Amino acid sequence: MKTYRLQFEQNLPIPLAESWDFFTSPLNLAKITPPTTGFEVTSPFDVKSKVYEGMIITYKIKPLFGIKMDWMTEITHIKDQQYFVDEQRFGPYALWHHEHHFKAIDGGVHMADILNYAIPYGVIGRLSNSLLVRKKILKIFAYREKMINGLFGIYRR
């Protein structure tokens, strides 16, 4: 199985505790995900819900061609105000391992996302990644960066 790795970094002009609070709320993910993905958290969380190790999060998504799918991830690791990891348990990928890292910096917080993923279906999956999937993921994270800047401002140090 061919795996792929993408890394995204962004600085925010807010305290570490504020960024941690926002990004560990499962419901906030929908606020920074493009509407075109049809992303909807279907787990019965409220606005006070925070991720914890072992937490299962279910979603509806439209990853490609507007086809609605179920997706399930598990929060597998957390180190308070440093990182958490979500891994797919069921969904469109053969592998989805997404690390979210946070580090206090002068005047804000540095965030890094490390995503390792794989597409099923062998050669067809590799071709699909080259033509569609990688570009779609890059667009999602570009949208995410824009939305995060809109919510918290642009880091200017």
Rank of each mutant, 00 (worst) to 15 (best):
M72A: 13
R126M: 07
N149T: 05
R156W: 14
Y93P: 00
A142Q: 12
K60V: 09
Y83S: 14
L127F: 07
I67D: 04
I119Y: 00
I75E: 06
P120V: 00
T24I: 08
T3R: 06
P26E: 05
F45P: 00
M147Q: 07
E74C: 14
Y93K: 00
M72C: 11
T42H: 08
L132W: 06
W71F: 06
L64Q: 07
Q81L: 15
S49N: 04
V41N: 09
Q7D: 08
K79S: 14
Y52K: 12
T42I: 10
V123D: 04
I140E: 01
T37P: 03
K103W: 05
A118K: 00
K48A: 09
W71T: 01
E87T: 07
V123Y: 06
N149M: 03
V41P: 02
K48G: 04
S25D: 12
K2N: 06
D70W: 10
K2T: 08
H101W: 14
G38V: 11
S43G: 12
K136W: 06
M69D: 03
K50A: 11
T73K: 02
R134I: 00
S128V: 02
L132T: 04
S130H: 07
E87A: 09
T3E: 07
R126F: 08
F90H: 05
K68T: 10
L131H: 07
M1C: 04
T42Y: 08
E9R: 15
K139H: 12
D21E: 12
E40F: 02
E9W: 12
L27M: 05
T3M: 08
V133I: 10
E87C: 11
T3S: 11
T37K: 13
G38A: 13
Q10F: 06
F65S: 11
D70M: 05
F22P: 01
R144T: 11
